[in-house]
Design a protein around this nucleic acid. Structure first.
Length: 822
DNA sequence: AGCACGCCGACT
DNA sequence: GTCGGCGTGCTC
């Protein structure tokens, strides 16, 4: 056999859990296009895979022996820049993630080639072909699909009438049904809509009083002319349905045009929203950020502003400044559906210059947004953490809003933190990074103290509005006053406050971080609580569905008639969830318009938007909700916020529990009193003097920060050292324990434990994880902790390596930056 | 991760 | 006799 002569060789990162990239030979016909940053199809073992070229080497003779051949280059241009490849490679290395898996995150699935069903030659088929063991007609087919799978249609086109033979060859194991890497997906053309000729939008809208959405669409078209349907959809919920109706009536025309909005045009840069005046504090903050923008200087800022202090306006001004330089802006938000207010303001200010990237997009839509950015026509990208990989080649500003939010950490596969990756991108691009929050992550605040980033403070709400008054109610005392057996849901203080606000026509939010009706089905006879069959957790009773549910694996059973432990009929529903809270509020305030927003309610399409719009439009008196209501929405009519059980998050076995509690309470309290009327927050808690709860009363972030910092220092937790979390899981409890014990021994040996001088590195565990069984897998955890960051990380790396070739039934996750240890 | 190879039990 | 279970080893 002749060894093939290759024009070059390329290193290809493939989405497999193998540390390195793989080398392939580039045949002459692909030599001109096989460039780094493009996706390629390569043979990999018995299959074909799509990967990304990360490196190319020309003129490397001799070593091409044994290389396999690059089959196809998908992209006609680089979709991941060399700079991004470098950043991802460095970041992946630091979190012990194989490069291919990490880069797979950087190329969103929407850009993956479309796959179709087709046929390829099996190894046996290729061998038969080489031996010449096939009939002429079979030979033609097999050689056609020998090194690239083809769709049935493609085979039929090339060799008419071959269908039956293809099926026979499949049965004989010569061919196999497989997926075919498709052509590059083209960006969808933009659907645009305009008023039909001769239609006057205003007049037509006035004739449709019963169809407010249709009327809204008509008015918008009347004022703005031709619009992309996507933009209409963002501005008017339910625009799609309205459009179809209007098209049916012949009032509007829907057409297509290619996606190529013009280069950023300064005249267009001002959208329909005009910029408000800045407060002096905003002015100072903006001035410092703008100076860094103009100087094209990498610098990190912590924009530390209380709720309602106008952080967004600072972002928008800085973004406008960046566009003026001709550079691009990246804005990250924790979760697009919950923070769509910031997105809406970006749209209002910058119009079509904004691309939105998030996981809710369909592949075609996502690709469309991606291509708009790649082509350089759209200078602003906004999205959730994966938007970090947005293809912007001349980044002039990065903003991370609500930077303390846990959603910025990817918790599987490539376990990156958006803050870290954003820092790398900003450093590489030479641009400022602005981290905004009312409750900065402890690490961020501490980094500011050390001078690693500049802290810009917005201490007051805009418009001279006061922060809400916060009252803390001690539930222990309150319960003592209650007759025995009576359930305590709303304290007298919270009830009175609710009554008063409702009487005055104000709105209230009740926050409870736990969905369902009741969280434990408890037997008074034997003390047994109904538990999940697959997880080590109590089942939650959901009244709406009349079933018990596991919140981790979604196991469901009907409510038992009698205790499943002892058969006694006397079971009680303990623990309060949002469903029961809703019931209680409706009972106490029968005239109030009440709605509930949690993950269960939000399952209904559009429900979240509907409820939030109702609250904003003051068509709702009381909103009951979980985390979902805590995030940065503005509800001008909300005067009262009630926190029903403030210490729920405090009880979690996690060193960040206090931090998360303080952040959550401060954020939710910030929903109160956005208008000129003062707001009130009532916090119900069994731990009124806890340092995560007490300072909420005085909006005293610094007091919380100092105390928490002291705790962290005393215990050697971040930011005073590095912590590595190792989670070992297996369906077999003994296998999990055994593997964890082996890893712990290894870690201890590496830490130099048990003899010699103390190293300051602690290995804790193996111990059952806080959730000791999840989806039928037993979980054992290990913590490595120490102030010598390098040495701790070296141990983490060693454990990752030791893990790679372990027992298959055992899964090991090593996280060198654990945020959430449940 | 996926896929082949390989070595042991219940069926045409 | 083979179909198929999943243990383990490798993929440029």
């Amino acid at each position: 056999m002749r060894s093939p002569r290759f024009a070059a060789r390329v290193e290809v990162a493939l989405p497999v859990p193998v540390e390195s990239a793989f080398s392939y030979g580039v045949p002459a016909d692909l030599a001109a296009i096989a460039e780094p940053g493009r996706r390629v199809v390569v043979p990999f073992g018995a299959r074909r895979m799509t990967g990304l070229i990360v490196e190319r080497r020309d003129g490397d003779p001799g070593s091409s022996e044994g290389l396999r051949t690059l089959l196809r280059v998908i992209d006609t241009r680089s979709v991941v820049s060399p700079e991004m490849i470098r950043i991802v490679r460095d970041a992946a290395d630091e979190v012990f993630c194989p490069i291919g898996l990490a880069l797979a995150c950087a190329t969103p699935s929407g850009t993956a080639p479309r796959t179709a069903r087709g046929f390829a030659a099996t190894p046996r088929g290729r061998e038969a072909l080489a031996r010449g063991a096939l009939r002429a007609d079979a030979r033609e087919i097999v050689s056609f699909v020998a090194d690239e799978a083809r769709t049935a249609r493609a085979i039929e086109r090339r060799l008419p009438g071959s269908g039956p033979l293809v099926r026979t060859l499949c049965r004989d194991g010569i061919l196999a049904a497989t997926s075919v890497a498709g052509r590059e997906v083209r960006p969808p053309s933009l659907r645009v809509v305009e008023l039909a000729p001769g239609v006057d939008g205003e007049t037509a809208a006035a004739r449709l009083p019963r169809a407010p959405q249709q009327a809204a669409v008509l008015r918008r078209l009347a004022s703005r002319g031709t619009l992309p349907t996507a933009e209409l959809g963002r501005a008017i919920p339910g625009a799609g349905r309205a459009l179809r109706a209007l098209a049916g009536k012949g009032l509007v025309r829907v057409g297509r045009r290619a996606t190529s909005p013009a280069r950023p045009n300064p005249a267009l840069a001002a959208g329909e929203e005009t910029a408000p005046r800045l407060t002096p504090h905003q002015e100072t903050a903006f001035g410092l950020v703008a100076a860094a923008v103009r100087a094209r200087r990498f610098e990190r800022f912590l924009l530390h502003g209380v709720t309602g202090s106008g952080k967004t306006e600072v972002y928008l001004r800085a973004a406008a400044e960046t566009l003026e330089l001709g550079r691009q802006v990246l804005v990250l938000v924790p979760e697009i559906t919950l923070t769509h207010q910031l997105v809406a303001r970006l749209h209002a200010r910058f119009g079509e210059q904004v691309a939105v990237l998030h996981s809710g997009l369909r592949p075609g839509e996502r690709l469309g947004e991606w291509q708009r950015l790649l082509s350089g026509t759209t200078p602003i990208a906004v999205g959730a953490r994966s938007a970090l990989f947005a293809p912007l080649d001349d980044l002039g500003l990065i903003v991370i809003d609500e930077e303390h939010d846990g959603a910025y950490k990817n918790e599987e596969g490539f376990r990156y933190h958006a803050r870290d990756l954003a820092t790398r991108r900003a450093a590489a691009a030479g641009c400022p990074l602005v981290l905004g929050s009312a409750t900065p992550a402890l690490e961020t605040r501490h980094a500011a103290e050390r001078g690693e980033l500049q802290r810009l403070v917005l201490p007051h709400r805009i418009g001279g509005r006061p922060l809400p008054a916060v009252e803390i109610v001690d539930l222990g005392k309150e319960r003592a006053l209650l007759p025995r057996g009576r359930k305590l849901v709303l304290s007298r203080r919270l009830q009175a406050a609710l009554r008063e606000v409702l009487a005055e026509g104000g709105q209230a939010i009740l926050f409870l971080n736990r969905r369902g009706f009741s969280t434990r089905i408890f037997c008074f006879d034997c003390g047994h609580a109904e538990r999940c069959r697959h997880c080590d957790i109590s089942l939650v009773y959901h009244a709406a569905e009349r079933c018990l549910r596991c919140h981790y694996c979604d196991y469901r059973i009907p409510p038992p008639e009698v205790c499943s432990g002892c058969g006694a009929p006397d079971t009680a529903l303990l623990g309060l969830g949002t469903e029961r809270l809703e019931e209680e509020v409706r009972r106490l305030f029968p005239e109030a318009r009440v709605a509930r927003l949690d993950r269960d309610a939000a399952r209904r399409r559009g429900e979240t938007e509907r409820v939030l719009a109702a609250l904003r439009g003051e068509r709702l008196d009381v909103l009951i909700g979980t985390q979902m209501v805590a995030k940065g929405h503005d509800f001008p009519g909300v005067r009262l916020v009630g926190v029903v059980a403030a210490d729920l998050a405090l009880q979690l076995p996690d060193f960040r529990a206090a931090e998360r509690t303080f952040q959550l309470l401060t954020q939710v309290a910030g929903r109160a009193g956005r208008r000129s009327l003062p707001g009130l927050v009532v916090v119900q808690t069994f731990a009124p003097d806890h340092y995560a709860i007490r300072p909420v009363r005085d909006h005293d972030y610094e007091a919380f920060y100092r105390e928490e910092l002291a705790h962290r220092a005393a215990l050697g937790y971040p930011p005073f050292g590095r912590l590595i979390h190792v989670l070992v899981s297996s369906a077999d409890p003994e296998a999990a324990l055994e593997a964890a014990t082996r890893l712990a021994d290894r870690a201890r040996r590496a830490a130099g434990d048990g003899g010699g001088e103390p190293t300051g590195i602690e290995v804790l565990g193996p111990a059952p994880a806080p959730l000791a069984r999840l989806r039928d897998r037993y979980r054992i955890q290990l913590l490595v902790k120490g102030s010598d960051e390098k040495r701790v990380l070296a141990i983490g790396r060693e454990l990752t390596r030791a893990t790679a070739r372990d027992d298959r039934s055992v899964r090991v996750q090593v996280d060198p930056n654990p945020l959430n240890m449940l």
